Structure formats: C-alpha cells, structure tokens
Computed example of a mutant assay.
Amino acid sequence: MTILWAIVAGLIIGLLARLVLPGRQPIPLWATIVAGIVGGLVGNGLAAGFGVAHTSGVDWTRHALQVGAAAVLIAIVTPLWTGRRRV
C-alpha cells in the first residue's frame, strides 16, 4: 500500500510541478510521476533540514519544497527527453 501512495503522491506533486513551470513539458506521464516521487523525497529531506517538516496544521512549506524540487527535476529532464526524441 505504501508503494501505491508513493505513486499517487508522485503523480500529484509532479502534475503540480508541471503547472508551476512555464511552457509545455513534453515528457511522458511516468517521468512526471518519477520526478514527483523523487521531488517529494527531496522536499521532505529539505523540510527536515530546515526544521519545518512537522508543524501544526497543514505543512505548506514542506509541500512547497516538494513541488519545487519536482519542478527542478522536470526542468532538467525535459530538455534531455526532447533532445533524445529528435535523434
């Protein structure tokens, strides 16, 4: 069940990250999910490092760090993916 939740959270985080980025990101959905999962893990690590991982109420800072990390990953993957597809 944990793997299923990681996939669902990765999908949500990845799609939010794609919304934050300007322009079109022609990468497949599985790459968005993977970037969302990794971004979620990186964002959790950053939140723990900054001491904002557990707050009362909704952890908006942690979620923003997760989406931001996923956006950076998608911004890195997109040109690599499109460059690979042109060959």
Rank of each mutant, 00 (worst) to 15 (best):
G43A: 09
G14K: 02
V52A: 00
R18H: 14
G57V: 01
I37P: 12
G39L: 04
S56C: 07
G39R: 06
D59M: 12
V42K: 06
G57M: 04
T61E: 11
L19Q: 15
W60R: 07
A71H: 05
L16K: 13
G68T: 02
A47I: 01
I12Q: 01
L46F: 10
P26E: 10
A9F: 10
G68K: 06
I12P: 00
Q25D: 01
G57A: 07
I13M: 10
W60I: 05
T55G: 06
W60K: 04
A6E: 14
R24C: 12
L11Y: 08
W60G: 11
L46C: 05
V38G: 07
W5P: 03
R86K: 13
V58A: 12
I37R: 02
T2P: 04
V20F: 09
G83K: 14
Q66F: 04
P22A: 07
R84N: 13
A9N: 11
G40M: 04
R84K: 13
P22S: 15
A31D: 14
G36D: 00
W30E: 13
V52M: 01
G23I: 04
G51M: 10
A6S: 08
A17R: 00
R85C: 09
A35W: 02
L41A: 11
R86L: 12
G49M: 06
I7V: 07
I7L: 14
N44M: 11
G36N: 02
A47K: 01
I3A: 08
A53T: 00
W60Q: 05
V38N: 03
W81P: 04
V52Q: 00
L21S: 08
L4W: 13
T82G: 06
I13K: 11
A70C: 07
V77C: 07
I7H: 00
T2R: 11
P79H: 03
P79I: 10
R85V: 05
L16G: 14
V42N: 11
A6P: 11
G45D: 00
F50T: 00
W81M: 06
T32P: 08
V58Q: 14
W5L: 15
V42Q: 13
P26H: 06
A75I: 05
I74E: 03
V52S: 00
L65V: 09
G68D: 06
I27D: 04
H54D: 10
T78C: 05
L73K: 12
V67A: 12
V34Q: 00
I76E: 01
L41G: 15
G45E: 08
I12F: 11
I3T: 12
D59W: 09
G39C: 01
G14E: 02
L19I: 11
A71M: 09
G43N: 03
H63E: 14
L46H: 02
V72K: 09
G39H: 05
R62I: 02
